[in-house]
Amino acid sequence: TEKEKEVKRLAKERGLSPDQVRELAQRAGFSPDQAKQIADEFA
């Protein structure tokens, strides 16, 4: 999704850790499970 792409782009730009990616995703409105899946891509 657009929102997911945006979260991943920000995460890459900022060099976020997987935990930070998960927090960012949840703040963007993703469920905890979705946020974990997104964060796992950065693990």
Rank of each mutant, 00 (worst) to 15 (best):
T1M: 13
E2A: 10
E2I: 10
E2Y: 11
K3T: 09
K3M: 13
K3W: 12
K3D: 07
E4R: 15
E4S: 14
E4A: 15
E4D: 05
K5R: 13
K5H: 09
K5I: 11
E6Y: 15
E6H: 10
E6K: 07
E6D: 07
V7Y: 04
V7K: 02
V7H: 02
V7N: 03
K8N: 04
K8D: 02
R9N: 06
R9I: 05
R9K: 08
R9D: 05
L10P: 00
L10Q: 10
L10M: 09
L10R: 06
L10Y: 09
L10A: 06
L10N: 04
L10F: 06
A11L: 02
A11W: 05
A11I: 03
A11K: 02
K12S: 08
E13V: 11
E13I: 14
E13H: 08
E13G: 05
E13F: 07
E13Q: 12
R14H: 13
R14I: 06
R14P: 02
R14A: 11
R14W: 15
R14T: 06
G15P: 00
G15T: 04
G15H: 10
G15I: 03
G15L: 05
L16D: 03
L16C: 06
L16I: 03
L16T: 00
L16W: 05
L16Y: 12
L16Q: 02
L16R: 02
S17I: 04
S17H: 08
S17M: 07
S17V: 05
S17T: 14
P18M: 11
P18Y: 15
P18D: 05
P18E: 07
P18R: 12
D19R: 11
D19Y: 07
D19F: 08
D19C: 12
Q20G: 07
Q20E: 14
Q20V: 03
Q20Y: 03
V21W: 03
V21T: 06
V21Y: 02
V21M: 04
V21R: 01
V21A: 05
V21H: 00
R22L: 13
R22M: 14
R22A: 11
R22W: 12
R22Q: 11
E23Q: 13
E23L: 14
E23Y: 07
E23T: 08
L24P: 00
L24M: 09
L24Y: 06
L24S: 02
L24F: 07
L24T: 01
L24C: 05
A25Q: 00
A25D: 00
A25Y: 02
A25T: 01
A25I: 03
A25F: 04
A25L: 11
Q26A: 11
Q26T: 11
Q26D: 03
R27S: 10
R27P: 00
R27W: 10
R27Q: 13
R27H: 08
A28T: 06
A28L: 15
A28P: 00
A28R: 12
A28G: 03
G29H: 01
G29M: 01
G29S: 02
G29L: 01
G29K: 01
F30H: 00
F30I: 04
F30T: 00
S31M: 05
P32S: 11
P32W: 12
P32L: 12
P32T: 09
P32C: 14
D33H: 11
D33N: 10
D33V: 11
Q34K: 15
Q34C: 07
Q34L: 07
Q34S: 05
Q34A: 12
Q34E: 13
A35W: 03
A35M: 02
A35I: 04
A35P: 02
A35D: 00
A35Q: 03
A35C: 05
K36D: 11
K36W: 14
K36I: 10
K36S: 11
K36L: 10
Q37K: 15
Q37G: 06
Q37T: 11
Q37A: 14
Q37P: 00
Q37E: 09
Q37W: 08
I38P: 01
I38D: 01
I38F: 04
I38Y: 03
I38N: 02
I38A: 02
I38M: 06
A39V: 04
A39K: 02
A39N: 01
A39S: 07
A39Y: 03
A39W: 03
A39I: 03
A39E: 03
D40S: 10
D40I: 13
D40Y: 13
D40V: 09
D40E: 14
D40Q: 11
D40K: 11
D40F: 12
E41P: 03
E41H: 05
E41A: 12
E41C: 05
E41K: 06
E41I: 06
F42I: 12
A43L: 12
A43F: 15
